[in-house]
Amino acid sequence: MLGARGDSHRQRPAYYVPRYLQEAGYRLFPVPVHEPRPIEILGEPIVPSLSALPPVDIVNVFRRSEQLPEHEADLLQLRPRAVWFQQGIVNDAVAGRLAEAGIDVVQDRCIMVEHRRLLPGAAH
């Protein structure tokens, strides 16, 4: 969860979307980018950067569209199966380069909304 937020930001998607996914059974690796950085988010120890992540299936991104290029090299090196830009986040140039590297990219969609829509019995 690139750009994950802590408890003091409960009203923000960067907090409640990861919480929803955690409650749905997904393991989270919060990578906060805002100061001050907490020690943990949602009970999970923070990871200081994308380059410090273990192999992951999906990197869910809570960053502004214009901030994505600063994470592109780390995403390409990490090579997750997919990178998910949350609702309102679009950067066709970065998405194109990730896709060229064989990484699936979703732009401008909320992973929580899609999870609820696609999985029968998911929390609504």
Rank of each mutant, 00 (worst) to 15 (best):
A123H: 15
G102D: 09
P45V: 09
Y20N: 00
A73Q: 13
V94H: 03
E35Y: 12
A82N: 06
S51M: 06
P18D: 05
R27Q: 13
G25K: 05
H124I: 12
V47L: 06
P18V: 09
A14I: 01
Q107G: 09
E100Y: 05
P48I: 11
E23S: 08
A14E: 02
R97H: 11
I111N: 00
Q87T: 07
Y26N: 05
A93S: 14
A123G: 09
L68H: 03
Q86N: 10
E114F: 03
E114Y: 02
C110R: 00
G96M: 08
R109Q: 14
I41K: 01
F85G: 01
R81Q: 15
I58L: 07
W84P: 02
H34G: 08
E114L: 08
A101M: 11
V113W: 00
F85Q: 05
A93G: 11
L98M: 06
E44T: 03
E70L: 11
R117E: 12
P80N: 07
S65I: 03
R64H: 13
F29K: 05
Y26L: 14
R10T: 14
G6W: 10
R27I: 09
G43H: 05
R19Q: 15
A4W: 06
L78I: 08
Q77P: 00
D104T: 14
V31D: 08
G25E: 06
S51C: 08
I103L: 12
Y26P: 01
R37C: 03
Y20R: 01
L75M: 13
V94A: 11
P36H: 07
P18L: 08
R19G: 06
A95W: 05
Y15W: 14
E35H: 11
R79T: 10
G102V: 13
S51W: 07
F29G: 04
W84Y: 04
V61L: 03
V47R: 10
I41E: 02
A52I: 05
F85T: 04
V61M: 00
Y16S: 02
P13K: 06
R109K: 15
P45Y: 06
P55Y: 10
M1A: 12
A101T: 12
D108M: 13
L118N: 09
M1S: 12
L50T: 06
P45G: 07
R63N: 07
R37G: 04
A52T: 03
P45M: 05
